[in-house]
Simulated scan of single mutants.
Amino acid sequence: MSSNKESFGKTVGFVFVVCLVCAALVSFSAVMLKDKQVANKLLDQQTKILEAAELLDVAGKDIVGTFNKLVEAKMIDLDSGEYIEGDPLLFDERRNARDPAKSEKVEDDIAGINRRSHTAVVYLVHNEAGKVQTVVLPIVGSGLWDLMYGYVGLEADLNTVRSVVYSDHKETPGLGAEVMNPKWKALWPGKKMFDEQGDVAIKVVKGGAKKGDEHAVDALSGATLTSRGVEYTLHFWLGDEGYGPFIAKNRGGLN
């Protein structure tokens, strides 16, 4: 009996030591890799923003250099549409949306986000002459399974689409995940987000958009809810509760 107790005690002790060593290794790895993870996350964000501005071919392998040269990140107050002081690198929309002090309950929540940060970051993309040619706006809204995060790139008229790019989603592979398909993304450039009255008019059409309809894009085949989520997300973020005030103030010219 004593031998069994001794054997059991050694086994428990061994397992305990192994657990401690593994925990220490995981903690050490997390600390050592944190800077690299942050850098990789930033690089992915910069890549998506350049893609939304249709500048990936220009950037080539120099994503960071091209971004730093041509892209200006600015904080805005969403309610007023005015620029505000703040560090865009420290801004975290997901964190803000969870903080009641930094966000608000959405009244007409067609995007399904529940709460919206008081502030946002917009990306002004300049050409070589220093003139703003594209504005990239971060967007977030519900798909079939969860929130989908992305960017919409608009020309300086703040109406004509350059690109709609999704960067983070949990949609079904082969269906809702087709938001990442280059063929579907290629349908967006040149479309108009607003009609002549200034109302958000873009729509994602099940069965296919009519030829020549500048406000319509084909829906994703077999992914009705995801397609509807994209449309609702754009209507929300380009409307009064999203970037609407900022767009209204800057249609006459960006600087």
Rank of each mutant, 00 (worst) to 15 (best):
Trp145Cys: 12
Leu154Phe: 09
Arg94Thr: 15
Gly190Lys: 02
Glu82Gln: 14
His169Tyr: 04
Thr172Val: 14
Asp157Ser: 11
Ala101Phe: 08
Asn159Phe: 12
Ile113Ala: 10
Ser167Leu: 00
Val164Asn: 01
Lys192Arg: 15
Gln133Glu: 15
Arg115Thr: 09
Glu104Asn: 10
Asn159Thr: 14
Ser142Phe: 14
Ala186Pro: 07
Ala73Leu: 04
Leu175Phe: 11
Asn159Ile: 13
Leu187Phe: 02
Asp99Met: 01
Ser103Met: 11
Gly81Ile: 08
Leu78Gln: 01
Ser167Pro: 05
Ala111Thr: 06
Met148Cys: 04
Ala129Cys: 00
Gly141His: 06
Arg98Pro: 01
Glu85His: 13
Lys185Ser: 00
Leu137Asn: 02
Ala73His: 06
His169Glu: 05
Ala129His: 13
Val125Lys: 09
Pro189Ile: 01
Ser167Asp: 04
Asp157Leu: 07
Val135Asp: 08
Thr160Tyr: 13
Ala120Arg: 09
Gly143Met: 03
Ser163Glu: 12
Arg94Tyr: 08
Met180Gln: 09
Tyr166Gly: 00
Asn114Met: 14
Ala177Tyr: 09
Ala73Tyr: 04
Tyr166Ala: 00
Val140Phe: 02
Met148Gln: 01
Pro138Ala: 10
Thr119Asp: 15
Gly112His: 11
Ala73Met: 10
Asp87Val: 07
Leu158Trp: 02
Leu147Phe: 02
Val132Arg: 11
Thr134Tyr: 07
Val135Ala: 14
His118Lys: 11
Pro100Gly: 08
Lys170Ser: 11
Val165Thr: 02
Gly86Glu: 13
Asn127Ser: 06
Val165Leu: 01
Val140Arg: 07
Val125Pro: 04
Ala101Leu: 13
Glu128Pro: 01
Gly190Val: 08
Asp87Tyr: 03
Gln133Ser: 15
Lys185Val: 01
Gly143Gln: 00
Val71Met: 08
Lys183Gln: 04
Leu70His: 05
Ala177His: 10
Val106Arg: 10
Leu175Ala: 14
Leu90Gln: 14
Ala156Gly: 06
Leu147Asn: 13
Ala177Phe: 08
Pro138Gly: 12
Trp188Met: 13
His118Thr: 08
Asp109Arg: 14
Thr160Phe: 06
His126Met: 12
Asp77Asn: 14
Val136Gln: 04
Pro100Asp: 12
Glu72Phe: 13
Ala156Pro: 11
Val161Thr: 10
Asp87Trp: 08
Ser142Ile: 11
Val71Pro: 01
Thr172His: 07
Ala101Gln: 15
Phe91Arg: 05
Asn181Pro: 03
Leu147Lys: 06
Ala73Cys: 11
Asp92Cys: 09
Gln133Arg: 15
Ala120His: 05
Arg115Pro: 01
Pro182Met: 03
Lys170Met: 14
Ile110Trp: 06
Leu175Cys: 09
Val132Asp: 03
Leu154Cys: 06
Glu82Tyr: 11
Pro88Lys: 06
Val106Glu: 04
Gly112Leu: 09
Val122Lys: 12
Val140Thr: 15
